[in-house]
Nucleic acid binder design. Structure first.
Length: 684
RNA sequence: GGCGAGGUAGCUCAGAUGGUUAGAGCGCAGGAUUCAUAACCCUGAGGUCACGAGUUCAACUCUCGUUCUCGCUACCA
C-alpha cells in the first residue's frame, strides 16, 4: 500500500451459516484481518471492519430438510454460534451482520435492479424441471435420478456423488423431485446472466495494475481464470430460500447466493451506519474527489479468490457507483496434523471447542495461528508445535521477561517508580524499539503478519538480553541507582510491548497494562510512554501458563477419536429403496480377469482395461488410475457388469463396468471372488 | 490433460529489482547465570537452496525441461 488512504473498509469472508468455525477459517480470513484493523485503529485511521453470516444458498435448505427443521432454524443456530466464537476469540468486527436481514434483501434487490435498468444482464430461457405439485422449479439439488454414467439411482441433479460426474438435471434418467417424490416436468424458465466475457478486457486491464502489488498466489489465480476465458454467469436461481428477484416476471426466483453474499459487506456497513449515525456511503461509494475514496480490502481464503477478484469487481464495475478492492490478500490453506482440515470427516480443531478446553487462552491460539498463517503457501498446525510455541516463545520470552522485571521492581523498590523515569535512558534500546515499530508497521501493511508478530517477540527477547547484560540483581547492593535505571528502562520496554500486543494479543495486552497499572482503553502509537513520579505498579501475575504434555496428548487423542468415530458413522450410509428380484436379476455380473491395462491419455483417473469375461474379451474404461498402477493389475480377477449399455468415454467405447468398493474417503478397491474362479462365472 | 502456486538446514518457514562466507525460530551440542514459569543469555554444529540443462563475469533469485506437493479446471467408472 503505497498510497495513504483517509479511510479503510476492511472485510473478512462471510462465514457460511451451516456449520461452526474451525482454525482453518480463522487462519484463512479473520485473524490477519483483525490484526490489520487493530493496527490501523492504533494509527488513528478511520477504519471499519465488516463481516456477517452468509445465510442463503441451497446447501442450507438441503441441510434443513435433512434435519427436518426450517432453514431459519439452521441459520439462527449457526449465526449465533459463529458470532459468539468470534467474540470469544477477540475478532474485533465493527459490525457483524447477517444476510437474512431485510436491509440486506432491500439493498441486494436495489443492486440487481440497478444493473437490470442499465441493461447489463442477458436474459436467457432454458428448460428446467418443475414440480407441479409444489408449484415450483427445482434447483439441481432437489432432483434425484439415475446417473447415466454409473447407474447410481440416487444421483443429484448437479452431480452423482457415487461416481463424481458433474451432471445437468436433464441428464438424469427417471428424474424425481425430492419435494413431492413425483416425476417433475420440463418447463421453460428465464434467468438473468451477467456477461462476464463482456467485462473481460476491462478486468484484464484492471488486474494488470495489481501485478506486483497483489500476492502472487492471488494474481496468478486471476490470470489463470482470465486465460481460460470468462463465461456469462447466471445471477438468479429457481429457489425458495434467498433474496427475491425484484421483477414481476421472476416470481419464485431468488438471487444467486454469490451475488447477494458480497453485497452483504455493503448492507452490513449500511446497518452499522444507521446504528452509529455514520455515512456508510463514504466507505463504499466513489467520492467526487478520487483521493477521498475509501481503501477496500477483502481478507479471504484462496477458495474465494475468483469471486472477490473477478466476479464481484465486475459487478461493482457494472453498477458504477462503487469503489473496487485495493487488495485481496487471500491466504492459502491450513492443514492439521499432516492432513487437510475436513468438516465432513470432522478432522478439525473447532473454535468453540478450543475455547471450552482452553478457557481464557484465546491469545495462545491467536499467537500460534499468527505464527503459521498460510500467507504464501499451505501451512500446518500441530498440537506439538502449539505447545512449543506457547512454551518457548510466549512463556519463556514474553511472559518471562515481564515477570522478571515486575518481580525485581517489587523486590527492590516496592513496585514504585521514582526518580528520573520519564524516558528511556538507553539509546540503543530506544533505537531498537523504534526500529521494531517501523518493521511491524511495514510488515502489517504489506500483509506479512507472521513477520510482524515475530518482531514483537524480538522486542521481548531484547529485553531479556538487556536484563542479563546489566544484571541488576548483582549490582543492587553497590549501585542501587543504576539498578533503578535498568529496571525503569525495562518497564518502558514492557509498556511498549503492552502497546504492540494490542494488535496481536489483545487480552494479554490488557493484562500487561494492568500490571503496569495503566488505565487506557486504547493506547495509540503516537501517545508517549511516560511514568510519573511515584507511579505504583500492580502485583506481578503470570501472562501465560506452560502447556503440559498431557494436555497436548489429550487433544491429539481427541482428534483421532473424532476422525475415526466419524468414519464409522460415514460408512453406514442409508440403504437405497427396495428393488424387486427381477430388477436385480436383470444385472449380469461375471467374474473376469484383467488382461491388459493402460492409462488413458490426458486423464488423471482413467485406465483402459481389456477384460476376459469368459464370454468375450472387451474394453472397459475405469476411473481407478489414482489407486492402481496399470502393470500391477494385470491378471487381477474382478467382478464385471457385462450388460451395462456401452458408453463412449474419451473416445473409447467402454463395454461394461468393474465393481469397486469405495470407502468414505473415496478410495477404491476391487471386488472379486475370494478364490480364483473361471472367467464368466456368474455373480449373483 | 490445461492453468496457477509451491518444493531453501532434523522441523516450521524468511530470503524487492541476480553480486562478497544463504538467514530466523524451534530442536540438538557446549558454555555462562540464578532475578525469573528448570525459564533467560552466549557460542557452535547442520543446507551441492527438488533435479537437469541454458543465459550471464556472476543465479536460490532469469529461461527451458524433468519430477513431487497443493489448488482450480477438465475427464471420471
Amino acid at each position: 500500500m503505497e498510497k495513504d488512504f483517509k479511510r479503510y473498509t476492511v472485510t473478512s469472508a462471510l462465514p457460511y451459516a451451516n456449520g461452526p468455525l474451525h482454525i482453518g477459517h480463522v487462519a484463512g480470513a479473520y485473524l490477519s484481518a483483525d490484526i490489520f484493523v487493530r493496527h490501523l485503529r492504533l494509527k488513528r485511521k478511520d477504519v471499519i471492519y465488516i463481516c456477517g453470516s452468509d445465510e442463503h444458498g441451497a446447501a442450507i435448505t438441503i441441510k434443513a430438510k435433512k434435519e427436518g427443521i426450517t432453514p431459519r432454524q439452521i441459520i439462527d443456530k449457526y449465526h449465533q454460534e459463529i458470532k459468539t466464537a468470534f467474540e470469544n476469540f477477540g475478532i474485533s468486527f465493527d459490525f457483524y451482520h447477517r444476510t437474512s436481514e431485510p436491509i440486506h434483501h432491500d439493498l441486494s434487490k436495489e443492486f440487481f435492479l440497478s444493473l437490470y435498468n442499465k441493461g447489463e444482464f442477458i436474459e436467457k430461457d432454458s428448460d428446467q424441471y418443475y414440480d407441479a405439485e409444489f408449484n415450483q422449479f427445482l434447483a439441481d439439488r432437489y432432483i434425484t435420478g439415475t446417473c447415466p454414467v454409473c447407474s447410481n439411482e440416487n444421483a443429484y441433479g448437479d452431480q452423482c456423488e457415487k461416481c463424481g460426474t458433474s451432471l445437468s438435471p436433464i441428464d438424469l434418467i427417471n428424474p424425481i423431485s425430492t419435494l413431492s417424490g413425483k416425476t417433475p416436468v420440463l418447463k421453460s424458465t428465464k434467468h438473468w446472466f451477467l456477461p462476464l466475457d463482456k467485462y473481460q478486457p476491462w478486468l484484464e486491464n484492471w488486474l494488470e495494475g495489481k501485478k506486483g502489488d497483489w500476492k502472487t498466489n492471488v494474481y496468478g489465480q486471476c490470470t489463470s481464470w482470465l486465460k481460460a476465458g470468462l463465461q456469462p454467469r447466471a445471477m438468479t436461481r429457481d429457489l425458495d430460500w434467498g433474496v427475491d428477484v425484484p421483477l414481476p416476471e421472476a416470481e419464485g426466483k431468488k438471487l444467486y447466493v454469490w451475488l447477494d453474499a458480497p453485497i452483504g459487506y455493503i448492507s452490513a456497513t449500511k446497518q452499522w451506519g444507521l446504528d452509529n449515525g455514520k455515512d456508510w456511503e463514504k466507505y463504499w461509494k466513489r467520492q467526487p474527489d478520487e483521493n477521498d475514496n475509501s481503501c477496500l480490502i477483502h481478507f479471504i481464503g484462496k477458495d474465494n479468490i475468483v469471486f472477490h477478484c473477478i466476479i464481484f469487481p465486475a459487478i461493482l464495475h457494472a453498477h458504477g457507483e462503487y469503489i473496487l478492492p485495493e487488495n485481496v490478500p487471500a491466504n492459502e490453506f491450513l492443514n492439521l496434523e499432516g492432513d487437510k482440515l475436513s468438516t465432513s470427516r470432522n478432522h478439525a480443531v473447532w473454535l468453540h471447542e478450543y475455547m471450552e478446553d482452553f478457557p481464557g487462552k484465546q491469545d495462545e491460539l491467536r499467537y500460534v495461528l499468527t505464527s503459521i498463517l498460510p500467507e504464501t503457501s499451505d501451512s500446518e498446525f500441530t498440537w506439538k508445535d502449539y505447545q512449543a510455541r506457547v512454551n518457548n516463545e510466549l512463556v519463556a520470552i514474553l511472559g518471562n521477561f515481564v515477570n522478571r522485571v515486575m518481580i525485581l521492581m517489587h523486590k527492590y523498590f516496592e513496585g514504585k517508580v521514582t526518580g528520573a523515569s520519564n524516558e528511556l535512558t538507553d539509546k540503543n534500546l530506544h533505537a531498537a524499539i523504534n526500529d521494531g515499530y517501523d518493521e511491524i508497521e511495514r510488515a502489517i501493511e504489506s500483509f506479512k503478519f507472521r513477520q510482524a508478530s515475530a518482531a514483537v517477540i524480538d522486542i521481548a527477547r531484547m529485553g531479556n538480553r538487556y536484563l542479563t547484560e546489566n544484571e541488576p540483581w548483582k549490582i543492587f547492593s553497590t549501585e542501587p541507582e543504576k539498578t533503578r535505571e535498568v529496571l525503569h528502562n525495562c518497564l518502558h520496554i514492557i509498556a511498549h510491548l503492552g502497546v504492540l500486543t494490542q494488535t496481536f494479543l489483545p487480552a494479554s495486552s490488557k493484562k500487561i497494562l494492568g500490571m503496569l497499572n495503566i488505565q487506557k482503553e486504547n493506547w495509540f502509537y503516537d501517545e508517549p510512554v511516560i511514568f510519573i513520579e511515584g507511579h505504583q505498579l500492580n502485583k506481578a501475575e503470570l501472562l501465560f501458563e506452560k502447556v503440559e504434555d498431557s494436555i497436548i496428548e489429550r487433544q491429539v487423542e481427541k482428534l483421532k477419536e473424532k476422525t475415526s468415530s466419524n468414519q464409522m458413522k460415514q460408512s453406514a450410509i442409508p440403504a437405497k429403496q427396495n428393488i424387486d428380484y427381477e430388477q436385480f436379476s436383470a444385472m449380469d455380473i461375471r467374474a473376469g480377469t484383467i488382461l491388459e491395462a493402460e492409462k488413458v491419455a490426458k486423464t488423471k483417473k482413467l485406465l483402459k482395461l481389456l477384460i476376459d469375461t469368459g464370454i468375450d474379451q472387451r474394453t472397459v474404461v475405469s476411473g481407478i488410475a489414482e489407486y492402481y498402477e496399470p502393470e500391477n493389475i494385470i491378471g487381477q480377477q474382478v467382478s464385471i457388469l457385462v450388460n451395462l449399455a456401452p458408453r463412449e468415454i474419451k473416445g473409447i467405447v467402454s463395454q461394461g463396468m468393474i465393481l469397486m468398493a469405495e470407502n468414505s474417503e473415496g478410495k477404491l478397491t476391487f471386488v472379486s471372488p475370494v478364490d480364483q474362479f473361471a472367467e464368466g462365472s456368474v455373480i449373483r
